[in-house]
Nucleic acid binder design. Sequence first.
DNA 1: GAAGGTTTTCGACTTATAGTCGATAACTAT
DNA 2: ATAGTTATCGACTATAAGTCGAAAACCTTC
Lengths: 248, 248
Amino acid sequence: MAVVLPPHRHEACYRHEALGVVFQVRDGRLNVLLWRRAASPFEGAWALPGGPLGPGERLGASASRHLATKVDLKEIAHLEQLETRSDPVRDPRGRVLATAYLALVTTGARPHVPADTAWHPVDDLPPTAFDHGSITGSARERLRAKLSYTNIGFALAPETFTIAQLRDIYAAALGHPVSATNLQRILTRRGVIEPTEEVARPAAAGGRPATLYRFAARTLVVTNPFAAFRPRIPSPGTGSEGRQPLNA
Amino acid sequence: MAVVLPPHRHEACYRHEALGVVFQVRDGRLNVLLWRRAASPFEGAWALPGGPLGPGERLGASASRHLATKVDLKEIAHLEQLETRSDPVRDPRGRVLATAYLALVTTGARPHVPADTAWHPVDDLPPTAFDHGSITGSARERLRAKLSYTNIGFALAPETFTIAQLRDIYAAALGHPVSATNLQRILTRRGVIEPTEEVARPAAAGGRPATLYRFAARTLVVTNPFAAFRPRIPSPGTGSEGRQPLNA
DNA sequence: GAAGGTTTTCGACTTATAGTCGATAACTAT
DNA sequence: ATAGTTATCGACTATAAGTCGAAAACCTTC
């Protein structure tokens, strides 16, 4: 890999792994994909999918590659870098840096997973290996924050959905009750979701059929930008031009 | 899968460096600390301070250690991890992963910097080395976002300050005009800043002396949490208990 | 097909937060 | 004193968000 490395210079190098925190809302709860370690260290504990970075490989590609062994890659609707852990003793076998990625799978997708792998509700985790429990916590915080100022819900919700379904998904991911009325109004106003022509079949018990919505975009967009302290832009054609009174 | 790491297995390892994006507001503009490369590659271009990760060293400590050679460490009021770049060709000399850190220096501090090192306004950068220009851009976005939902301003502002000074600092870091009235009200309500007993001496031209403010905390606190879609908590003692109508 | 049950949707209201603007306060210099 | 300058504050407006209940649109049962 090293091309013109100065031969006299001895620079340390480090093993590096990519980890994926794969979230999916199942049965109204936020779940994370973990596999059970069969051997020491942390035998029997549950770990995040991941593995070593390959030569010439980027971290994002590495995360995808290792995830592909545990879950169908096509089902991963969003992937983003979280953080890099560098504690020298995070792995008792030796030093390994780890870069964690947040990966989201839409509700309803039922990707096939290997026998040693299973979904676990994030607020009821089994014993975890290494620092993977703490990494899962960071991932959850990131997801929570982004749900409120981006359209990241597209990666958790199915292609089309009713507002009630979306409310349940948001409630599971956010960890607190969500008002359907509010959710509909806010996301519609922001242009995050839009109604389709179709309606959902009413439940067995009957009830008014719900309109099906979809996400307007299926790539990440920041929809609620941090605009604090910014003066409003006056509507064009009004007032004198070139005024900048707030900075004077 | 791999149990007790088979000793015959040759796992690749990678050089890794920590980089610091040091920001300071100077003369009403957001500046970043860069040093001028004297040798190839990118001879004459400007680079972020940083250097290789040491054995047994954590990334944050490594960033601090390398920053110490370019700026007085005591002046760094806040340090946080940004992201890890892994493009195999980001360094033409060979593969080096880089983890970037955001570092903030308070206005007014005048740390001594080496001869090859200088401050540059972020919106008027000279030619930069490697991917350091892009990393600086990411850092700036992070700073902008955090200014609006955390108390991170404490790491940009001096110990005490007038609202007008704080407005200039925010305006420089955010890149848009800021209303002093609004800034005062919002940050006070959130409990981010608080008035001291003292007042500033009026400027040469006179004018009413301004109250000096300080930040209530000098460590990072999220003050404007993302609470979208969350129902309000009813004031205690009101209504029947145990109701959860929004999730029903 | 009328009645009653269920779920969705919508409008009207209230509250909280943020931006605007001008009046007043408190200083300096002449 | 008077004029000039800057800071502070209150009152107003605008926007966003949370609450609540009525009406809509389906189901099943009688």
